[in-house]
Design a protein around this nucleic acid. Structure first.
Length: 803
RNA sequence: GCCGGUGUGUCGGAAUUGGCAGACGAGACAGACUCAAAAUCUGUUAUCCGCAAGGGUGUGUGGGUUCGAGUCCCACCACCGGCACCA
């Protein structure tokens, strides 16, 4: 028998699959369809690392298994190619980002091909391809057309020294990552997408999809729906009202002061009546340097300034209360103002404590001298006039009614979710296809003129005043208004990287269509995505953004399903062998090319699946890789003990049926590691047995094939099994044959195992008891004691409780 | 800080979801083969006491529920992911 040489046979089979186009998919209504999706990679200059193949192999296993089960399977791959690293590389090396991107894609593609994934490469897409950009822009214009894209003043991170807008990631401890200069928040008028309009549906429709629970929870919490009230507090001696949002209107009698955001317009409006305006402005300036994250940190020391000259009136108590500004109140959440109830809110309590503001108990049950009492389930309302004696939920109803009747407030639902800032002052992104005309306002670029392509520029760096580099290209910026024909200017902001990835799963199904983003026929046949696997880190941004886009498309009749993804699962990260995240700077990156070269693609795939619990992170280990190679070597050598035979070997029959069951189930539940362990045990059994029949081996090869497609296909051919393994069907098992007749039953005394007896599965409790009491060791623990209870779980355990 | 998650031998991990903790793999040790080494094959391998039979202890820490807890409940500790312009 020849040696197992993966480099040779892997190339061979990859070529055969390619030539036969067996993974190319067409619409075929005679078969059930299955759409398996993995997150497409960002083609960075570093190439693939061993983290990438983990989810790809997992879904490749599912895709291959589905084909054997008779499905028409779409399993596509593409490139999420716009992005900051490529742009920064281009700036540094003076190379056009399109060229960098092209090179990176070429490298990624050949790396992926060497691992033997069953991707349908005829469906390949790149978000930077003009044919793709056209439809990203077209879809954006739909948002604009339906009023979901709007301009709004939003802050950007501004490096005062480089005079450049920075991504959050480029800001380290309030300083610019490149030059160390000071970073402040600069206000810019930016395009926004109204994702908040979909907040309720993004939560409620989670009930209809099969996402793993932690993904659902994290999305719900990110959207952060809270039901409460908006209440007006009159500014004393003014017509002005200060509107606050609260989820605890029941505590209104305990509101002893108000806090508004440093940016609140009230301050400018009454500038002349405020005694300490300068002090407030100074405070506002320090706040401007902080991110929302720093502002709302619970543990930090509270800061704030009282507004001198303005007070408000608590509508419930009628008492005059002071108004403060503090960084922990954000203009972007609620109304930018709160009624502070220090007795029953942690932040308010700390603030009041620090500045000596009165703390009044209005819910009994805690000790507000020590800490805020925030429990809303057990408390009873006190010190609150007509609310006294009520439980919190009742009090909420009563006070809501009372306020509404007096026109002092209304019920309101708030969300933590904010609208999506869709503008970037960058070069390497899709230009926002809008033209500004002094007469007509913002006018969309007509469909015939799409895509709006990026002009070639000398310099990819943003401009000195915070505009995109595109703003410097006069011949690009200056155009005519599509509506009235007068001179007009193009929008120079580009879209965020998220734009292309928000709808790519729709393009895969019809990637060459130049009339539509995808045909209705293709959408009706292929959608939804049946199973989408991706990283946990994409849960609250990409996954939510793409659900939002899809829902909007559904509303305007572009797609036929409410949700894009039927099922969502998540994989863990692969860490370096030092248990740290793989990164160039840590020097612990493993390149899959090396593993494919030295051990083979099948070994890489097997190890990636065997490394541990698919949903958890796991450190890379070269010894582990070697172990998987040894396993495949042993599989290869099964040929040596092959005997003719069209039946399962009698002694192994139950093991084989059990293995079919276990592997079939484990591939569906992401337990690839235990599926492989089962196959390892089965191959060990073959060896212990000393021989394996053709039938036994064929079944084994099919089960292993989705994990290690090349070696199994080769052995299949080598031992002369009929046809090709890739044309076979998935094996079935007989449930009855997976059950053992005779089992070892543990016998416990007082919950501790004191012996094991061999029983027949359908032996009665009495029979088992009789057998158990013959066991010397078990008797030692029962003697001279009386049996007070017996617990018998058929097929599992028999426990005797004695005293 | 907030939201989500994780914690089991020397290491990666397994445990039919409340029923024999440590499957499978790695590593280590011993043996076979070899002049020798590598590769391969065989055996041992949580820990303590014991010649053995067997027994005690043991799933991040402390408590609880139960005949029985890695699994359920309460409190705590450590680590990982996300925090809206990285992808």
């Amino acid at each position: 028998m020849r040696e197992y040489s993966p480099n040779e046979i892997e190339k061979k089979w990859q070529n055969i699959w390619d030539e036969k186009e067996i993974y190319k998919t067409e619409i075929d209504k005679s078969k059930p369809k299955y759409y398996a999706l993995v997150e497409f990679p960002y083609p960075s200059a570093n190439g693939l690392h061993v983290g990438h193949p983990r989810p790809y192999t997992a879904m490749d296993i599912v895709a291959r298994k589905r084909r054997y089960e008779g499905y028409n399977v779409l399993f596509p791959m593409g490139w999420d190619a716009f992005g900051l690293p490529t742009e920064n590389f281009a700036i540094k090396n003076k190379i056009h980002p399109a060229i960098v991107t092209e090179k990176n894609i070429e490298r990624f593609k050949s790396q992926l091909k060497s691992i033997g994934f069953s991707f349908d490469w005829s469906k390949e897409i790149s978000t930077t391809d003009p044919k793709y950009v056209k439809w990203t822009q077209w879809l954006f214009l739909k948002f604009h057309e339906h009023g979901l894209a709007y301009k709004h003043e939003m802050p950007i991170n501004w490096c005062t020294s480089c005079k450049i807008g920075l991504a959050n990631e480029e800001v380290v401890n309030n300083a610019c990552e490149r030059c160390g200069g000071e970073v402040v928040q600069k206000i810019k008028n930016q395009w926004m997408l109204k994702i908040t309009e979909y907040a309720d549906r993004l939560i409620d429709d989670l009930d209809d999809v099969d996402f793993i629970e932690r993904v659902k929870l994290q999305q719900k919490n990110w959207i952060g729906r809270s039901i409460g009230m908006e209440i007006d507090f009159k500014v004393t001696n003014k017509e002005e009202k200060l509107r606050v949002f609260t989820t605890r209107p029941d505590t209104i009698f305990g509101s002893t002061y108000m806090v508004i955001a440093a940016e609140h317009p009230l301050i400018e409006k009454y500038k002349d009546e405020i005694g300490n305006y300068d002090e407030l402005m100074n405070y506002k300036e320090t706040v401007a340097k902080k991110s929302d994250f720093e502002r709302t940190e619970l543990s930090k020391e509270k800061t704030g300034v009282e507004i001198k000259g303005l007070t408000a009136t608590n509508p419930a108590t009628g008492k005059e209360i002071p108004i403060w500004i503090s960084d922990y109140v954000l203009m972007s959440y609620g109304t930018g103002a709160i009624m502070a109830v220090p007795g029953h809110d942690e932040r308010d309590w700390e603030f009041a404590n620090k500045f000596g503001l009165p703390i009044v108990e209005v819910i009994s049950g805690g000790d507000i001298k020590k800490e805020a009492y925030t429990d809303s389930e057990n408390g009873i309302v006190v010190n609150s006039d007509f609310l006294n004696g009520l439980e919190v939920e009742e009090a909420k109803e009563v006070i809501s009614k009372w306020l509404e009747e007096r026109n002092l407030g209304e019920k309101k639902t708030n969300y933590k979710l904010r609208d999506w800032v869709f503008s970037r002052q960058r070069y390497w992104g899709e230009p926002i296809p809008l033209i500004h005309c002094d007469d007509c306002g913002w006018v969309p670029v007509p469909e015939a003129d799409l895509p709006v392509m990026l002009p070639d520029v000398e310099n990819y760096e943003p401009t000195e005043n915070g505009e995109s580099p595109l703003a410097n290209i006069d011949e690009w910026v200056n155009t005519t208004c599509p509506s009235c024909g007068k001179a007009a200017k193009r929008e120079t902001d580009t879209m965020p990287n998220w734009a292309g990835s928000s709808w790519y799963f729709l393009r895969y199904i019809d990637p060459d269509n130049d009339k539509e983003f995808a045909s209705k026929e293709a959408i009706d046949y292929w959608m939804n995505v049946d199973w989408y696997n991706g990283g946990m880190e994409h849960t609250t941004l990409h996954l939510l953004y793409s659900r939002f886009w899809h829902k909007f498309f559904y509303d305007i009749g572009l797609v036929s399903t409410k949700e894009p993804y039927q099922k969502r699962t998540s994989h863990g990260m692969i860490l370096g062998d030092n248990n740290e995240k793989m990164s160039k700077s840590r020097g612990n990156v493993v390149n899959p090319d090396d593993i494919v070269r030295d051990f083979g693609a099948d070994t890489l795939r097997t190890y990636e699946m065997f490394i541990g619990d698919f949903e958890k992170s796991a450190p890379w280990s070269e010894n582990g890789v070697m172990g998987c190679r040894r396993f495949l070597e042993r599989v290869w050598k099964l040929q040596e003990i092959l005997v003719e035979g069209d039946n399962y070997t009698k002694d192994l029959e139950s093991s084989i049926h059990k293995a079919i069951k276990k592997v079939t189930e484990d591939f569906e539940t992401l337990k690839f590691n235990t599926a492989i362990a089962t196959l390892m045990s089965l191959s060990n059994e073959f060896n212990d047995c000393g021989s394996v029949t053709k039938k036994d081996l064929a079944t084994f090869l099919i089960l292993l094939n989705p994990v290690a497609p090349h070696i199994t296909e080769e052995i299949w051919q080598e031992i002369g099994l009929e046809g090709f393994l890739h044309d076979t069907t998935w094996p079935k098992y007989d449930e009855a044959k997976t059950k053992d007749q005779v089992i070892q039953m543990p016998i416990q005394v007082n919950g501790k195992v004191r012996g094991t007896i061999e029983i027949n599965v359908d032996d009665t409790q009495d029979k088992i008891k009789e057998k158990a009491l013959q066991d010397e060791n078990i008797m030692r623990f029962i003697e001279e004691k009386s049996i007070i209870k017996e617990i018998f779980v058929p097929g599992k355990i028999y426990n005797i409780v004695v005293r």
